[in-house]
Design a protein around this nucleic acid. Structure first.
Lengths: 236, 236
DNA sequence: GTTCCGTTTTGCGCTATCGCAAATACCCGG
DNA sequence: CCGGGTATTTGCGATAGCGCAAAACGGAAC
């Protein structure tokens, strides 16, 4: 069992209002594990035996239809929880979680949740806030899918990724984990082909620089403009 | 201040695990109010001064874009909470709530929430579950919008409404509150025109019977089939 | 009973985006 | 350094569904 330094996690919103001693007690119930790039953490439909806190790396949560199509529910960044099925009353995972980069997570057994929540009620309150935030994001996404064209949705998606997991470079902001056209398509409700066409267009205008599973926003500000424009032409 | 009979609300999931005496204490902090059909309960962006529990009637929660387009976030049925902005850490309402029928609600001041949660931790846990359930629904909706055609999405939407607020009739299931083509369009990410065409088609096949703000599912089972079919023709 | 207003229906052209297919480019492992 | 496999790009035809417009309809108020 790996030891976890409390100083790494005290400042997370999840543990707001939890006293250091209590935090140590909470962490004692967790173990940590490493998942190499592209490995599965859990599968949609599987028994929810654990819940997770991501320490390093990046995790993709995706939902699959009976016919095999996928959407990306979200990307998990370090410091965020995932696999909270049990907290929201599910016995099985509603999505599949995959490490998109070498990742390190803390793992609590599902059985620990009720006990922890009872002893530390602020855990429930804090989790309620983060789940609420995710709900807002979902609604925003639905709004976008209902009212905007694909190009704007892609712009929004990239800006959100940049905000969440962007690495500042001299030349712009790089999205700090491997992400394919297909992934972006699955975040925005379109096809990889359309995403590819859009990015090609942007690249030729100098808005982005991109390659295999790699995207740098060169002119974030102009992308914001694209994301907000309601609908009109744009070619030079 | 209206008195509220605890027996009306004890069985709600929100109050699971709350003792009768405690429940009375919780209800003492609430007042009740009546909203006539088509009246506003709160507006998107307004200061979140209260949170609500619907006792009778039906409430529509809708989100508006800067450019004025709307989507329906959800319909609230009796027994459900809404306007929980404060619980999820928001200071302003993220959507607009409107009574679509004469409605009666319980209203707590926002300031009561932290106090109640502290005294009755199961409130937070219970709310976490319902918010979690809504998050799942949102994800399902995103999945549908990403992978299904409009006709299937409309079918799903009607089936969900029927399940949540359907009134069983001899001739089928009637959606138990006034709902327009436009509303359905805003639930499914399409236009009222397309919804109208789809319902007309279904009506001529005897699947539904509908009129002004009124829909009866005559053959729910066949609509389920429609909702699930991945993609092919259907005309006789 | 009549009038007025919001809802629904329907026609028709347009286009954003998909779907399929094929060619290229890039990265990793050996 | 080379080969194989995956990711990306791009062309082109097909089409679901939008957008606009106008007509028909249904209810409610007076």
């Amino acid at each position: 069992m790996a030891r976890v330094d409390t100083s790494l996690v005290t400042h997370l919103p999840l543990f707001a209002g939890v006293k250091p001693d209590d935090l140590e007690e909470i962490l004692r119930e967790a173990r940590s594990a490493r998942y190499p790039k592209n490995s599965a953490i859990f599968e949609q439909g599987a028994d929810a035996q654990s819940f997770f806190l991501l320490l390093h790396g990046h995790v993709r949560a995706a939902k699959t239809t009976p016919t095999g199509e996928q959407i990306v529910v979200r990307y998990v960044a370090p410091g965020e929880t995932f696999g909270l099925a049990t907290a929201i009353g599910l016995t099985h995972y509603p999505a599949t979680a995959t490490a998109v980069d070498d990742s390190v997570v803390l793992i609590w057994p599902t059985a620990a949740w009720p006990r922890l929540v009872e002893r530390f009620p602020s855990l429930a309150a804090n989790t309620l806030q983060t789940v609420g935030a995710r709900l807002q994001e979902s609604h925003t996404r639905i709004l976008e899918m209902s009212t905007q064209q694909v190009e704007q949705r892609v712009a929004h998606a990239l800006l959100r990724l940049a905000k969440q997991s962007g690495k500042k470079l001299d030349q712009g902001i790089e999205i700090d984990f491997p992400i394919s056209r297909q992934d972006i398509a699955q975040m925005t409700g379109t096809t990889l082909h359309t995403v590819s066409r859009i990015l090609s267009g942007w690249e030729s205008q100098g808005l982005v620089e991109s390659g295999r599973q790699r995207i740098i926003l060169r002119e974030p500000h102009r992308i914001v403009v694209l994301a907000e424009r309601s609908a009109d032409s744009g070619a030079a």
